[in-house]
Amino acid sequence: MNSTVMNRADRTASRHIRLLEAQQAVNEILLGKSLQVRLSFCCLLARGHLMIEDVPGVGKTTLAIAMARVIGSDYQRVQFTSDLLPADILGVSIYKRDKEEFELHPGPIFSQVILVDEINRATPKTQSALLEGMAEGQVTIENTTHPLPSPFFVLATQNPLDLVGTFPLPDSQLDRFLISISLGYPDPAAERELLTTEDRSRMLDRTTSLLTPDDVKELQEDCEKVHVSEDLLDYIQALIKETRNDRWFETGLSPRAGLALLRASRAYAFLDERDYVIPEDVKTIFPGLSRHRLSPSSGFAQSADEQIEELLSQVPIP
């Protein structure tokens, strides 16, 4: 009995160590972006989906591929284009003459990690096919419901500049993404290292998986056990209440966003090797979580990011 407990503790500890190693491995590929990497893992552990929003060439795809590699899941990449159809994602049923029946050829959505490149290039119909799967954890093809694998993690990238011929996602669908991050240009030291060290794509090829899908599932369960005190709930409520004040944003955060904030904060605290959430976790998560959900009230020249910063600095920690 004692040894079982020990084993369990050992297994938990080793799982946790491998998680940190995986995080480290991604950091080695994507230089100088440890916060974004940590947010990405946080999103994975909180059973959410990640949106990476930035100009081309800053490493969006590199991050996504590196994540997928270290998690060790089966991984599919879908490049969204304007002529992509739902069936290209979900899969199709094809008639097999020898068996005299239809057989499903599953599409890329039936993998554990999916990288959706340039999600805003596809038509709303195709976007919806993906987003339904993200929300429900299952897809329906020709009246048959198929469960999606678990863990199921979608990384989508979006190019904010190239707006010609894109279909921006409506707010309701953006809500499906737990966290959105933007990478930004690397700082000079990181850029120098990037220029002098070996090619990233080769490094990616070399990257081996450090976690198994089962590990990820168990880590996700571990995250849910992180303690949240009454004081912290007060703070989360205060933050959400403040976003609903119309001097900041057109609409405030929804209760679903509040739940997401709590879940993500737990995952973040877990990544920080704590079994309890502190307000700093919430504050770190908050911009990534609310950026794509909130748009500033009209009449403000400030961007959502600036507004969120301002809001965070005005809500006292109880």
């Binding site: 502190i278 307000p279 700093e280 965070l312 600095s313 005005q314 006292p316 920690i317």
Partner: peptide, 9 residues
């Protein structure tokens, strides 16, 4: 001391 800052910050 900023009231909006947590202890660690």
């Amino acid at each position: 001391i900023q009231p909006s800052n947590g202890a660690i910050e």
